[in-house]
Simulated scan of single mutants.
Amino acid sequence: DNEVLKGDLSKYDWVHLHHEDFTGQYNKLYLAYRDAPWFVAQRERDLSTGRLFGKDNVPALKKAVADNIRGFVDRGGFLFAMCGATESLDLSIASLVVDIAGPFSDGTPPDPNADAKLDWTRALAFQGAHVEPSPYVNALSDIDGHQVNVPSRRQPLGTFSLFGFSAKLDPVATMLVQNHRTVVADFYGVTTSFNKAVVKRNVTVLAQEEGAPWSKYLHGDYGKGSWTFLGGHDPEDPQHAIGSAPTDLSLHPNSPGYRLILNNVLFPAAKKKPRKT
């Protein structure tokens, strides 16, 4: 956050986000993990950074960071986001007003969207989503088709299929779906999938589960730049939970899920201009 707000994004062509929560609600994990050392450390770091940049609360800090990332894409940057960063980034970008009650020093993650005015024309991928106002319901909104981040997962995992594109007509989409498999086992994340009902019409769907009301993999242009969203947290740890051991990639040299991630890492290098990845 500190580097983003100082303007350091101007040094880069490509940004990768994962499970960051840009609404300032810490993925609504406060009730279960408020005393965990890692949660306390994250909260204190955010509070300190917020004060440094004159922000009254953590949601205001995160909104400023999200707006800087939006500007990065608008000016020509490439953004790849996974897991909860996809949903929360767009919610924060669309939120025009962050109206927070309670003292800044409390550290309790408040709900920045309960009374927020939303402008979906600013968002990258989504429109018309319903924001979950209750701090006691873990979901941020109805963008996640699986509604995973709730006490009981509502949708089981299936598989998703990659679309085929013409390299001549759609070279970018073709690069992003290159894989040795066209059907990939699904995997959970804070945000696992994207409700088709709230995806903007100009967004390119790269992969989805057949017959399901959600998509898995999205791409689009924004200003002079472009972005790609992939739902889920870890392709080789589909039931991933807080505290799970990191995946040993040497055990999964042919992972089709990680191949999609690799496509996005390599994608900027395919452009004529030298890219920093």
Rank of each mutant, 00 (worst) to 15 (best):
G50Q: 00
R275S: 15
L31I: 11
F39S: 03
R153N: 04
I93P: 04
F160K: 07
P246N: 04
Y26L: 08
T192Q: 03
K276Q: 09
Y12Q: 03
A212K: 14
S10L: 02
F53L: 08
R122V: 04
A173N: 15
D142Y: 14
N27P: 07
L140P: 00
Q178S: 05
A64G: 04
L52R: 13
Y12D: 03
F267G: 07
N113R: 12
K224N: 15
D111Q: 11
I69M: 10
N68W: 04
F80D: 05
R43H: 00
N202I: 11
R154V: 08
R275M: 15
P103F: 08
I93Q: 08
Y217C: 04
R259I: 02
D144P: 07
S88I: 05
A101I: 10
I100K: 05
D106R: 07
Q147I: 08
R70K: 13
P235A: 09
R70L: 11
Y136P: 03
R275G: 14
V203G: 05
D248I: 06
S92E: 05
P103G: 08
V98Y: 12
K117L: 15
P59C: 12
S92I: 00
A212S: 13
P246I: 08
G211E: 10
L118Y: 02
P246C: 00
R70H: 09
A241I: 00
A32F: 10
A173L: 14
A101W: 04
K28V: 01
V184M: 06
N202R: 14
P268N: 04
I143Y: 12
P109S: 06
L89D: 00
F267T: 10
G158F: 10
K272C: 12
K224T: 02
N138F: 11
N263H: 00
P110S: 05
V203P: 12
G231N: 12
R34G: 00
D35C: 06
L230F: 08
F39G: 09
A36C: 01
P235W: 05
V73D: 06
R43S: 03
D111E: 11
S161W: 01
F80N: 07
V148M: 08
R43F: 00
V131L: 04
A41K: 11
L17E: 01
S48W: 06
L9W: 01
Q178I: 09
G158Q: 10
G107T: 07
K271M: 10
F78C: 03
G164D: 14
Y33E: 14
V98R: 14
D248A: 12
N264W: 05
Y30L: 06
F163P: 01
R45S: 13
I69P: 09
L157V: 04
N254R: 08
D46I: 07
P110H: 11
F187N: 07
S105A: 15
V15P: 14
T192D: 10
L91G: 01
A173I: 01
L5H: 03
G211D: 05
L91T: 01
T228A: 13
V183E: 14
